[in-house]
Design a protein around this nucleic acid. Structure first.
Length: 417
RNA sequence: GGAGGGAUGACCGAGCGGCCGAAGGUGAUCGCCUGCUAAGCGAUUGAGGGUUUACAAGACUCUCCGAGGGUUCAAAUCCCUCUCCCUCCGCCA
Protein backbone atom coordinates (compact mmCIF):
# COMPACT_ATOMS: atom_id res chain seq x y z
CA UNK A 1 0.00 0.00 0.00
CA UNK A 2 1.24 3.40 -0.98
CA UNK A 3 2.37 5.96 1.60
CA UNK A 4 -0.07 8.79 0.95
CA UNK A 5 1.72 11.52 2.85
CA UNK A 6 4.99 10.75 1.12
CA UNK A 7 3.17 10.74 -2.18
CA UNK A 8 1.92 14.23 -1.39
CA UNK A 9 5.23 15.62 -0.17
CA UNK A 10 8.00 13.82 -2.00
CA UNK A 11 8.22 14.61 -5.74
CA UNK A 12 10.71 11.79 -6.36
CA UNK A 13 8.37 9.27 -4.79
CA UNK A 14 5.54 10.54 -6.93
CA UNK A 15 7.63 10.40 -10.07
CA UNK A 16 8.55 6.81 -9.27
CA UNK A 17 4.86 5.89 -9.19
CA UNK A 18 4.26 7.67 -12.47
CA UNK A 19 7.12 5.78 -14.09
CA UNK A 20 5.27 2.60 -13.20
CA UNK A 21 2.22 3.76 -15.07
CA UNK A 22 0.20 5.52 -12.40
CA UNK A 23 -1.39 8.51 -14.10
CA UNK A 24 -1.02 11.98 -12.68
CA UNK A 25 -4.80 12.22 -12.55
CA UNK A 26 -5.05 9.00 -10.53
CA UNK A 27 -2.49 10.29 -8.06
CA UNK A 28 -4.22 13.64 -7.75
CA UNK A 29 -7.54 11.91 -7.29
CA UNK A 30 -6.04 9.87 -4.46
CA UNK A 31 -4.58 12.95 -2.79
CA UNK A 32 -7.88 14.80 -3.11
CA UNK A 33 -9.78 11.85 -1.68
CA UNK A 34 -7.31 11.78 1.19
CA UNK A 35 -7.90 15.45 1.93
CA UNK A 36 -11.68 15.19 1.92
CA UNK A 37 -11.51 12.11 4.11
CA UNK A 38 -9.36 13.90 6.64
CA UNK A 39 -11.68 16.90 6.68
CA UNK A 40 -14.73 14.75 7.28
CA UNK A 41 -12.93 12.74 9.91
CA UNK A 42 -12.06 15.84 11.89
CA UNK A 43 -15.67 16.97 11.77
CA UNK A 44 -17.10 13.60 12.75
CA UNK A 45 -14.62 13.12 15.56
CA UNK A 46 -15.36 16.57 16.93
CA UNK A 47 -19.05 15.74 17.16
CA UNK A 48 -18.31 12.39 18.69
CA UNK A 49 -16.10 14.00 21.30
CA UNK A 50 -18.96 16.28 22.31
CA UNK A 51 -21.36 13.40 22.43
CA UNK A 52 -19.02 11.33 24.57
CA UNK A 53 -18.57 14.24 26.97
CA UNK A 54 -22.28 14.81 27.42
CA UNK A 55 -22.92 11.12 27.76
CA UNK A 56 -20.31 10.77 30.46
CA UNK A 57 -21.79 13.66 32.40
CA UNK A 58 -25.20 11.99 32.53
CA UNK A 59 -24.15 9.39 35.07
CA UNK A 60 -23.15 12.06 37.58
CA UNK A 61 -25.89 14.57 36.74
CA UNK A 62 -28.63 15.32 39.24
CA UNK A 63 -32.04 13.84 38.43
CA UNK A 64 -33.47 17.16 37.23
CA UNK A 65 -30.49 17.81 34.93
CA UNK A 66 -30.72 14.43 33.34
CA UNK A 67 -33.56 14.88 30.86
CA UNK A 68 -31.94 17.96 29.33
CA UNK A 69 -28.59 16.23 29.02
CA UNK A 70 -30.09 13.16 27.48
CA UNK A 71 -31.91 15.33 24.96
CA UNK A 72 -28.66 17.10 24.15
CA UNK A 73 -26.87 13.82 23.67
CA UNK A 74 -29.64 12.64 21.42
CA UNK A 75 -29.28 15.71 19.25
CA UNK A 76 -25.57 15.14 18.87
CA UNK A 77 -26.24 11.53 18.06
CA UNK A 78 -28.59 12.54 15.27
CA UNK A 79 -26.12 15.04 13.86
CA UNK A 80 -23.50 12.33 13.86
CA UNK A 81 -25.82 9.90 12.10
CA UNK A 82 -26.16 12.43 9.30
CA UNK A 83 -22.45 12.97 8.84
CA UNK A 84 -20.92 9.57 9.51
CA UNK A 85 -22.13 7.92 6.29
CA UNK A 86 -20.36 10.62 4.30
CA UNK A 87 -17.12 9.73 6.01
CA UNK A 88 -17.66 6.04 5.37
CA UNK A 89 -18.25 6.75 1.73
CA UNK A 90 -15.17 8.92 1.44
CA UNK A 91 -13.08 6.27 3.14
CA UNK A 92 -14.31 3.52 0.86
CA UNK A 93 -13.51 5.65 -2.17
CA UNK A 94 -10.05 6.36 -0.76
CA UNK A 95 -9.49 2.68 -0.11
CA UNK A 96 -10.15 1.80 -3.72
CA UNK A 97 -7.88 4.51 -5.03
CA UNK A 98 -5.15 3.30 -2.69
CA UNK A 99 -5.10 -0.07 -4.41
CA UNK A 100 -4.56 1.51 -7.80
CA UNK A 101 -1.26 3.18 -7.02
CA UNK A 102 1.76 0.85 -7.28
CA UNK A 103 4.92 1.04 -5.20
CA UNK A 104 7.05 3.74 -6.84
CA UNK A 105 10.03 2.54 -8.79
CA UNK A 106 13.38 3.32 -7.24
CA UNK A 107 15.42 6.04 -8.94
CA UNK A 108 17.97 3.44 -10.07
CA UNK A 109 15.37 1.54 -12.11
CA UNK A 110 15.38 2.22 -15.86
CA UNK A 111 12.24 3.70 -17.35
CA UNK A 112 10.17 1.93 -19.99
CA UNK A 113 8.52 -1.43 -20.45
CA UNK A 114 9.30 -5.10 -20.86
CA UNK A 115 12.11 -4.60 -23.36
CA UNK A 116 13.78 -1.73 -21.58
CA UNK A 117 15.57 -3.77 -18.96
CA UNK A 118 19.17 -2.97 -18.21
CA UNK A 119 21.73 -5.74 -18.51
CA UNK A 120 23.99 -5.57 -15.47
CA UNK A 121 26.41 -8.30 -16.43
CA UNK A 122 26.80 -11.40 -18.54
CA UNK A 123 28.62 -14.34 -17.01
CA UNK A 124 29.91 -17.58 -18.50
CA UNK A 125 30.44 -19.14 -21.92
CA UNK A 126 27.41 -19.57 -24.14
CA UNK A 127 27.63 -23.00 -25.75
CA UNK A 128 26.16 -24.09 -29.09
CA UNK A 129 22.82 -25.88 -29.19
CA UNK A 130 22.98 -29.35 -27.66
CA UNK A 131 22.00 -32.54 -29.42
CA UNK A 132 18.62 -32.59 -27.69
CA UNK A 133 16.65 -29.69 -26.32
CA UNK A 134 15.60 -29.91 -22.69
CA UNK A 135 12.16 -31.31 -23.49
CA UNK A 136 13.43 -33.99 -25.84
CA UNK A 137 16.19 -34.94 -23.46
CA UNK A 138 13.90 -35.19 -20.47
CA UNK A 139 11.45 -37.45 -22.26
CA UNK A 140 14.17 -39.52 -23.91
CA UNK A 141 15.92 -40.20 -20.63
CA UNK A 142 12.65 -41.09 -18.96
CA UNK A 143 13.00 -38.19 -16.53
CA UNK A 144 9.93 -36.30 -17.64
CA UNK A 145 6.65 -37.76 -18.82
CA UNK A 146 4.19 -35.17 -20.06
CA UNK A 147 2.06 -37.47 -22.19
CA UNK A 148 0.84 -39.55 -19.30
CA UNK A 149 0.49 -36.44 -17.13
CA UNK A 150 -1.84 -34.98 -19.73
CA UNK A 151 -4.11 -38.02 -19.38
CA UNK A 152 -4.67 -37.48 -15.71
CA UNK A 153 -4.25 -33.73 -15.20
CA UNK A 154 -4.17 -32.06 -18.61
CA UNK A 155 -1.50 -30.04 -20.30
CA UNK A 156 1.26 -28.27 -18.42
CA UNK A 157 1.65 -31.05 -15.90
CA UNK A 158 4.50 -33.51 -15.82
CA UNK A 159 5.57 -36.64 -14.05
CA UNK A 160 9.14 -36.26 -12.87
CA UNK A 161 10.79 -39.66 -12.72
CA UNK A 162 13.91 -41.55 -11.87
CA UNK A 163 17.16 -39.76 -11.24
CA UNK A 164 15.51 -36.44 -12.02
CA UNK A 165 13.71 -36.78 -8.71
CA UNK A 166 16.95 -37.40 -6.89
CA UNK A 167 18.43 -34.46 -8.72
CA UNK A 168 15.56 -32.28 -7.57
CA UNK A 169 16.10 -33.35 -4.00
CA UNK A 170 19.81 -32.75 -4.33
CA UNK A 171 19.16 -29.25 -5.62
CA UNK A 172 16.75 -28.46 -2.82
CA UNK A 173 19.14 -29.77 -0.22
CA UNK A 174 22.19 -28.04 -1.58
CA UNK A 175 20.40 -24.72 -1.83
CA UNK A 176 18.66 -24.99 1.52
CA UNK A 177 21.89 -25.86 3.28
CA UNK A 178 23.65 -22.93 1.66
CA UNK A 179 20.90 -20.55 2.72
CA UNK A 180 20.73 -21.95 6.23
CA UNK A 181 24.44 -21.20 6.53
CA UNK A 182 23.65 -17.62 5.53
CA UNK A 183 21.11 -17.24 8.31
CA UNK A 184 17.97 -18.15 6.40
CA UNK A 185 15.60 -20.24 8.47
CA UNK A 186 14.34 -23.13 6.35
CA UNK A 187 10.55 -23.23 6.21
CA UNK A 188 7.99 -25.56 4.73
CA UNK A 189 4.98 -23.25 4.76
CA UNK A 190 1.30 -23.94 4.21
CA UNK A 191 0.55 -23.86 0.49
CA UNK A 192 -3.16 -23.36 0.99
CA UNK A 193 -4.07 -19.94 2.32
CA UNK A 194 -7.17 -17.89 2.94
CA UNK A 195 -8.34 -15.24 0.58
CA UNK A 196 -7.34 -12.47 2.98
CA UNK A 197 -3.76 -13.70 2.89
CA UNK A 198 -3.76 -13.44 -0.89
CA UNK A 199 -5.01 -9.88 -0.60
CA UNK A 200 -2.53 -8.95 2.10
CA UNK A 201 0.35 -10.42 0.14
CA UNK A 202 -0.65 -8.20 -2.76
CA UNK A 203 -1.69 -10.96 -5.17
CA UNK A 204 -5.42 -10.32 -5.06
CA UNK A 205 -7.31 -8.86 -6.80
CA UNK A 206 -4.75 -8.37 -9.60
CA UNK A 207 -3.55 -11.96 -10.01
CA UNK A 208 -6.69 -13.78 -9.03
CA UNK A 209 -6.91 -15.43 -12.45
CA UNK A 210 -3.50 -17.04 -11.89
CA UNK A 211 -4.48 -18.84 -8.72
CA UNK A 212 -6.24 -22.14 -8.08
CA UNK A 213 -9.25 -22.06 -5.82
CA UNK A 214 -9.96 -24.92 -3.45
CA UNK A 215 -12.74 -25.98 -1.06
CA UNK A 216 -15.37 -23.79 -2.67
CA UNK A 217 -13.24 -20.69 -2.47
CA UNK A 218 -12.33 -21.10 1.18
CA UNK A 219 -8.67 -21.65 0.36
CA UNK A 220 -6.27 -20.90 -2.43
CA UNK A 221 -3.19 -22.72 -3.62
CA UNK A 222 -0.20 -20.42 -3.51
CA UNK A 223 1.75 -19.67 -6.66
CA UNK A 224 4.85 -19.13 -4.56
CA UNK A 225 5.80 -19.61 -0.94
CA UNK A 226 6.37 -15.86 -0.89
CA UNK A 227 2.69 -15.64 0.09
CA UNK A 228 2.80 -17.64 3.32
CA UNK A 229 6.27 -16.25 4.10
CA UNK A 230 4.91 -12.72 3.83
CA UNK A 231 2.17 -13.75 6.22
CA UNK A 232 4.54 -15.22 8.77
CA UNK A 233 4.69 -11.94 10.70
CA UNK A 234 1.31 -10.55 9.78
CA UNK A 235 0.33 -7.81 12.21
CA UNK A 236 3.46 -8.27 14.30
CA UNK A 237 5.90 -5.74 15.68
CA UNK A 238 9.34 -7.25 15.24
CA UNK A 239 12.25 -6.43 17.50
CA UNK A 240 14.78 -4.35 15.54
CA UNK A 241 17.61 -6.35 17.08
CA UNK A 242 16.24 -9.52 15.47
CA UNK A 243 16.33 -8.05 11.95
CA UNK A 244 16.94 -8.93 9.27
CA UNK A 245 14.81 -12.03 9.63
CA UNK A 246 15.53 -14.36 6.74
CA UNK A 247 13.56 -17.37 5.63
CA UNK A 248 14.09 -20.00 2.98
CA UNK A 249 10.69 -21.39 2.06
CA UNK A 250 10.47 -24.70 0.30
CA UNK A 251 7.21 -25.65 -1.31
CA UNK A 252 5.25 -26.71 -4.31
CA UNK A 253 3.86 -23.81 -6.29
CA UNK A 254 0.69 -23.77 -8.33
CA UNK A 255 -0.07 -21.43 -11.19
CA UNK A 256 -2.88 -21.44 -13.66
CA UNK A 257 -0.74 -19.71 -16.28
CA UNK A 258 -3.82 -18.10 -17.72
CA UNK A 259 -3.09 -16.12 -20.84
CA UNK A 260 -0.02 -18.12 -21.81
CA UNK A 261 -1.60 -20.41 -24.38
CA UNK A 262 0.95 -21.46 -26.94
CA UNK A 263 3.91 -20.22 -24.90
CA UNK A 264 6.54 -22.72 -23.85
CA UNK A 265 4.32 -25.70 -24.41
CA UNK A 266 6.99 -28.37 -24.44
CA UNK A 267 8.76 -29.84 -21.46
CA UNK A 268 8.48 -28.36 -18.03
CA UNK A 269 9.49 -24.82 -18.70
CA UNK A 270 6.04 -23.53 -17.87
CA UNK A 271 3.92 -25.89 -15.79
CA UNK A 272 1.02 -25.58 -13.39
CA UNK A 273 2.88 -27.21 -10.53
CA UNK A 274 6.52 -26.98 -9.59
CA UNK A 275 8.72 -26.91 -6.53
CA UNK A 276 10.68 -23.91 -5.48
CA UNK A 277 12.97 -22.71 -2.74
CA UNK A 278 12.28 -19.06 -2.05
CA UNK A 279 14.17 -16.48 -0.01
CA UNK A 280 12.30 -13.91 2.03
CA UNK A 281 13.70 -11.12 4.22
CA UNK A 282 12.21 -8.82 6.77
CA UNK A 283 14.63 -5.97 6.94
CA UNK A 284 15.17 -2.51 8.46
CA UNK A 285 14.49 0.18 5.81
CA UNK A 286 18.00 1.59 5.91
CA UNK A 287 19.57 -1.64 4.84
CA UNK A 288 17.06 -3.10 2.42
CA UNK A 289 19.05 -2.14 -0.65
CA UNK A 290 22.05 -4.01 0.71
CA UNK A 291 19.74 -6.90 1.42
CA UNK A 292 18.58 -6.94 -2.20
CA UNK A 293 22.21 -7.19 -3.29
CA UNK A 294 22.78 -9.99 -0.80
CA UNK A 295 19.86 -11.95 -2.19
CA UNK A 296 21.07 -11.37 -5.72
CA UNK A 297 24.58 -12.48 -4.80
CA UNK A 298 23.22 -15.72 -3.34
CA UNK A 299 21.26 -16.32 -6.50
CA UNK A 300 24.40 -15.84 -8.52
CA UNK A 301 26.21 -18.25 -6.25
CA UNK A 302 23.56 -20.85 -6.96
CA UNK A 303 23.22 -20.33 -10.71
CA UNK A 304 26.94 -19.71 -11.16
CA UNK A 305 27.78 -22.60 -8.85
CA UNK A 306 25.92 -24.90 -11.21
CA UNK A 307 28.11 -23.58 -13.99
CA UNK A 308 25.24 -22.13 -15.97
CA UNK A 309 25.93 -19.10 -18.20
CA UNK A 310 23.66 -16.26 -17.24
CA UNK A 311 23.03 -12.58 -17.21
CA UNK A 312 21.64 -10.29 -14.57
CA UNK A 313 19.11 -7.71 -15.61
CA UNK A 314 17.33 -4.89 -13.85
CA UNK A 315 13.69 -4.81 -14.83
CA UNK A 316 12.37 -1.54 -16.22
CA UNK A 317 9.84 0.43 -14.21
CA UNK A 318 6.88 -0.41 -16.43
CA UNK A 319 7.53 -4.14 -16.14
CA UNK A 320 7.67 -4.22 -12.34
CA UNK A 321 4.91 -5.83 -10.35
CA UNK A 322 2.85 -3.42 -8.28
CA UNK A 323 4.60 -4.05 -4.96
CA UNK A 324 8.20 -4.00 -6.23
CA UNK A 325 10.36 -0.88 -6.13
CA UNK A 326 13.16 -2.67 -7.94
CA UNK A 327 13.68 -6.11 -9.39
CA UNK A 328 16.60 -8.10 -10.73
CA UNK A 329 16.17 -11.21 -12.83
CA UNK A 330 18.77 -13.82 -13.53
CA UNK A 331 18.35 -15.35 -16.94
CA UNK A 332 20.21 -18.45 -17.94
CA UNK A 333 21.36 -18.89 -21.49
CA UNK A 334 19.30 -21.74 -22.94
CA UNK A 335 21.36 -23.08 -25.86
CA UNK A 336 18.52 -24.80 -27.71
CA UNK A 337 16.72 -21.51 -27.95
CA UNK A 338 19.79 -19.32 -28.19
CA UNK A 339 18.13 -17.04 -25.67
CA UNK A 340 18.37 -16.03 -22.06
CA UNK A 341 15.43 -17.33 -20.08
CA UNK A 342 14.42 -16.26 -16.58
CA UNK A 343 15.27 -18.61 -13.72
CA UNK A 344 15.15 -16.30 -10.74
CA UNK A 345 13.99 -12.88 -9.74
CA UNK A 346 14.44 -10.84 -6.63
CA UNK A 347 12.59 -7.75 -5.53
CA UNK A 348 12.65 -5.10 -2.88
CA UNK A 349 9.08 -4.32 -1.90
CA UNK A 350 10.29 -1.59 0.47
CA UNK A 351 7.47 -0.76 2.90
CA UNK A 352 4.69 -1.21 0.35
CA UNK A 353 3.77 -4.75 1.31
CA UNK A 354 4.55 -4.31 5.00
CA UNK A 355 2.08 -1.45 5.21
CA UNK A 356 -0.68 -3.78 4.12
CA UNK A 357 0.63 -6.66 6.19
CA UNK A 358 1.00 -4.32 9.18
CA UNK A 359 4.41 -5.75 9.90
CA UNK A 360 6.43 -3.26 11.91
CA UNK A 361 9.72 -3.10 13.70
CA UNK A 362 10.36 -1.65 17.12
CA UNK A 363 13.64 0.19 17.53
CA UNK A 364 15.64 0.21 20.75
CA UNK A 365 14.08 3.57 21.66
CA UNK A 366 10.58 2.13 21.24
CA UNK A 367 9.77 3.90 17.99
CA UNK A 368 7.93 1.91 15.37
CA UNK A 369 8.27 1.76 11.63
CA UNK A 370 7.18 -0.53 8.86
CA UNK A 371 9.81 -3.05 7.88
CA UNK A 372 10.96 -3.55 4.34
CA UNK A 373 10.28 -6.92 2.76
CA UNK A 374 12.26 -8.59 0.01
CA UNK A 375 11.96 -11.86 -1.77
CA UNK A 376 13.89 -13.82 -4.32
CA UNK A 377 13.94 -17.20 -5.98
CA UNK A 378 16.64 -19.46 -4.64
CA UNK A 379 15.85 -22.36 -6.89
CA UNK A 380 12.87 -22.95 -9.13
CA UNK A 381 13.52 -26.64 -9.46
CA UNK A 382 11.87 -27.33 -12.82
CA UNK A 383 13.64 -24.53 -14.58
CA UNK A 384 16.93 -25.43 -12.99
CA UNK A 385 16.58 -29.07 -14.00
CA UNK A 386 15.81 -28.28 -17.61
CA UNK A 387 18.82 -26.02 -17.79
CA UNK A 388 20.91 -28.81 -16.38
CA UNK A 389 19.44 -31.11 -19.04
CA UNK A 390 20.75 -28.85 -21.77
CA UNK A 391 24.08 -27.88 -20.27
CA UNK A 392 25.08 -31.24 -18.81
CA UNK A 393 23.87 -33.76 -21.39
CA UNK A 394 26.43 -35.75 -23.34
CA UNK A 395 26.17 -36.94 -26.91
CA UNK A 396 25.86 -40.54 -25.77
CA UNK A 397 22.75 -39.78 -23.74
CA UNK A 398 24.01 -39.48 -20.23
CA UNK A 399 23.76 -36.60 -17.82
CA UNK A 400 26.79 -35.30 -15.97
CA UNK A 401 25.99 -34.34 -12.39
CA UNK A 402 26.89 -30.69 -11.69
CA UNK A 403 29.78 -30.50 -9.24
CA UNK A 404 27.89 -29.10 -6.24
CA UNK A 405 25.36 -31.91 -6.45
CA UNK A 406 27.76 -34.83 -6.72
CA UNK A 407 28.00 -35.34 -2.98
CA UNK A 408 24.23 -35.34 -2.65
CA UNK A 409 23.79 -37.74 -5.58
CA UNK A 410 26.68 -40.03 -4.78
CA UNK A 411 27.39 -40.28 -8.50
CA UNK A 412 29.00 -38.22 -11.20
CA UNK A 413 27.04 -39.42 -14.21
CA UNK A 414 23.39 -40.39 -14.64
CA UNK A 415 21.97 -42.82 -17.18
CA UNK A 416 18.48 -42.83 -18.61
CA UNK A 417 15.85 -45.15 -17.27
C1' G B 1 -19.01 -36.00 9.72
C1' G B 2 -21.13 -35.92 15.26
C1' A B 3 -20.98 -33.40 20.38
C1' G B 4 -19.40 -29.56 23.31
C1' G B 5 -16.19 -25.19 24.96
C1' G B 6 -13.95 -20.60 24.00
C1' A B 7 -12.11 -15.73 21.66
C1' U B 8 -10.09 -9.42 26.70
C1' G B 9 -3.48 -5.72 26.56
C1' A B 10 3.61 -9.02 25.34
C1' C B 11 1.47 -13.39 28.22
C1' C B 12 -2.03 -15.40 32.03
C1' G B 13 -6.56 -13.81 33.75
C1' A B 14 -10.91 -10.68 36.07
C1' G B 15 -14.79 -7.74 34.52
C1' C B 16 -21.07 -9.00 32.45
C1' G B 17 -24.86 -1.14 30.99
C1' G B 18 -21.94 4.50 33.01
C1' C B 19 -14.75 8.03 35.35
C1' C B 20 -13.06 0.47 32.05
C1' G B 21 -8.22 1.37 27.66
C1' A B 22 -9.77 -2.12 31.04
C1' A B 23 -8.60 -5.15 38.30
C1' G B 24 -4.90 -8.71 39.68
C1' G B 25 -0.74 -11.47 38.28
C1' U B 26 3.53 -12.69 35.02
C1' G B 27 7.08 -10.59 32.00
C1' A B 28 9.87 -6.15 30.66
C1' U B 29 12.31 -1.34 31.90
C1' C B 30 14.20 2.12 35.52
C1' G B 31 15.41 3.13 40.62
C1' C B 32 16.37 1.50 45.74
C1' C B 33 18.47 -2.35 48.45
C1' U B 34 22.56 -5.94 48.18
C1' G B 35 30.00 -8.10 48.70
C1' C B 36 28.01 -10.79 43.70
C1' U B 37 23.62 -13.39 42.28
C1' A B 38 18.82 -14.43 43.88
C1' A B 39 15.04 -12.48 46.77
C1' G B 40 12.67 -7.94 48.44
C1' C B 41 10.72 -2.77 47.90
C1' G B 42 9.09 1.43 44.71
C1' A B 43 7.86 3.42 39.95
C1' U B 44 6.90 2.87 34.80
C1' U B 45 4.94 -0.25 30.89
C1' G B 46 -0.89 -1.47 24.77
C1' A B 47 -1.73 -0.10 19.73
C1' G B 48 -3.50 2.64 15.44
C1' G B 49 -5.34 7.35 13.68
C1' G B 50 -6.89 12.75 13.53
C1' U B 51 -6.25 18.16 14.80
C1' U B 52 -2.48 21.61 16.29
C1' U B 53 2.93 22.12 15.60
C1' A B 54 8.44 21.87 12.31
C1' C B 55 5.69 14.91 9.80
C1' A B 56 9.79 17.44 17.23
C1' A B 57 8.10 17.79 22.26
C1' G B 58 3.55 18.78 24.24
C1' A B 59 -1.71 19.51 24.19
C1' C B 60 -6.65 18.05 22.66
C1' U B 61 -9.29 14.13 20.60
C1' C B 62 -11.20 9.52 17.97
C1' U B 63 -10.97 4.22 17.44
C1' C B 64 -9.67 -0.69 19.16
C1' C B 65 -11.76 -6.11 24.63
C1' G B 66 -12.27 -12.10 17.47
C1' A B 67 -15.23 -9.62 12.96
C1' G B 68 -19.74 -7.23 11.28
C1' G B 69 -24.52 -5.33 12.47
C1' G B 70 -28.38 -3.83 16.30
C1' U B 71 -30.53 -1.75 21.13
C1' U B 72 -29.17 2.71 24.36
C1' C B 73 -27.75 9.39 25.94
C1' A B 74 -24.02 5.49 27.20
C1' A B 75 -21.75 -1.52 25.58
C1' A B 76 -15.84 -5.39 26.87
C1' U B 77 -20.62 -5.87 29.27
C1' C B 78 -27.47 -6.81 26.35
C1' C B 79 -29.42 -8.85 21.23
C1' C B 80 -28.49 -10.89 16.21
C1' U B 81 -25.05 -12.73 12.26
C1' C B 82 -20.38 -14.45 10.89
C1' U B 83 -15.34 -16.04 11.45
C1' C B 84 -11.64 -18.39 13.90
C1' C B 85 -9.56 -21.50 17.70
C1' C B 86 -9.79 -25.60 21.12
C1' U B 87 -11.51 -30.41 23.36
C1' C B 88 -13.86 -35.27 22.74
C1' C B 89 -15.73 -39.13 19.23
C1' G B 90 -15.36 -41.04 14.15
C1' C B 91 -12.28 -41.20 9.74
C1' C B 92 -7.33 -40.56 7.96
C1' A B 93 -1.49 -39.33 5.77
Amino acid sequence: MIDVSQLANDPDYRRGAERKGASGEAIDALLAADRTTRGLRTEVEGLRAQQNAVSRSISTASPDERPAKIAQAQELKNALAGLAPQLDEAQAALGELLLTIPNPADASVPSGGEDDYRVERVVGEQPVAPKWDHAEFGEMMGYVDSERAVRISGSRFVYLLGDAVLLEMALVQWVTKMLAAEGFVPVVPPVLVREQMMVDAGFFPADRAQVYEVDEGELFLVGTSEVPLAGLHLGEALNAADLPLRYAGSSSCFRREAGTYGKDTSGMFRVHQFDKVEMFSYCPPERSWDELELILSLQERIVGGLGLPYRVITTAAGDLGAPAAKKHDIEVYLPSQGKFREVTSCSNYTDYSARRLQTRMVDADGSRRFVHTLNGTACAVGRMLLNIFEHYQTDDATLVVPAPLVDFMGREVLQGR
